[in-house]
């Protein structure tokens, strides 16, 4: 962990001066190069490039956690917004890609956990640079296991239940609409939703204590 903290700080000039690529012993690869060049012109161009390269896959990744299109887009939008608004883009350690993925995953994970467990984590606190430092192999694996378990849980739902759940979440349809379209009673749709959420909650109940251990 000490190494992880020490490494990016050792030679901050290299990380923070992307404008002169000759200084940098090309640790920064492919896309990052384009992004940093764009940021050298203006923050606007920088962000436009970031959006172009990463917005779609980030939304797609967030969706693996939250299963609602709008929420996924909002989460990703907020991460970009925060990075821009706070001026954090001037001094991004690591790569932009790492920053964005780490922040989006953290947020998506917390969103779903809060939704399923009924908690309400105060939204103000996530300092992404700190978050990156506190990231351990265990937390990374934890996140990966979470979306994989969610997928598995949804796949294992009875077909009708799965269908109702995806219509409600992914397509953002009202229970009544789903009932009408599938020719079901409203009560049945509600029961399917309750069951799906019950199953998903189990993903977190098994996970929560472990997760907290890792954080502290």
């Amino acid at each position: 962990m000490n190494e992880a903290e020490g490494l990016p700080l050792q030679n901050p000039e290299n990380r923070l001066r992307p404008l002169h690529p000759t200084d940098t012993p090309v640790a920064i690869v492919d896309n990052e190069h384009i992004v940093r060049k764009a940021f050298a012109n203006s923050p606007e161009q920088g962000f436009e490039t970031l959006f172009r390269l990463y917005y779609r896959p980030l939304c797609s990744h967030a969706l693996r956690f939250v299963y609602t299109r709008e929420v996924a887009e909002d989460l990703v939008g907020e991460v970009f917004y925060q990075l821009w608004k706070t001026g954090g883009y001037v001094a991004v350690q690591y790569t932009y890609r790492t920053y964005l993925y780490a922040a989006v995953r953290h947020r998506a994970f917390n969103y779903l956990r809060d939704e399923l467990t009924g908690n309400r984590t105060p939204v103000s606190l996530d300092n992404v640079p700190e978050l990156l430092l506190s990231e351990t192999p265990q937390t990374l694996v934890e996140y990966d296991e979470t979306y994989q378990r969610l997928e598995k849980t949804i796949q294992e739902l009875p077909p009708q239940c799965q269908r109702v759940f995806l219509m409600s979440r992914f397509e953002n349809r009202k229970n009544q609409e789903i009932a009408d379209e599938l020719g079901l009673a409203l009560k049945t749709v509600e029961a399917h939703m309750a069951r799906a959420l019950q199953q998903l909650r189990k993903v977190f109940i098994g996970l929560a204590p472990l997760f907290f251990l890792v954080i502290h």
């Binding site: 172009r52 939304c59 990744h61």
Partner: peptide, 29 residues
Amino acid sequence: RERYYEWLHEWELSQLQMDANWQIAFDKV
């Protein structure tokens, strides 16, 4: 870790779950 995120990004691009319009999102932000 950088490598991990690089590959995660590549993997995600090859397995997209949804489409999203980055241009609209960029304008909004």
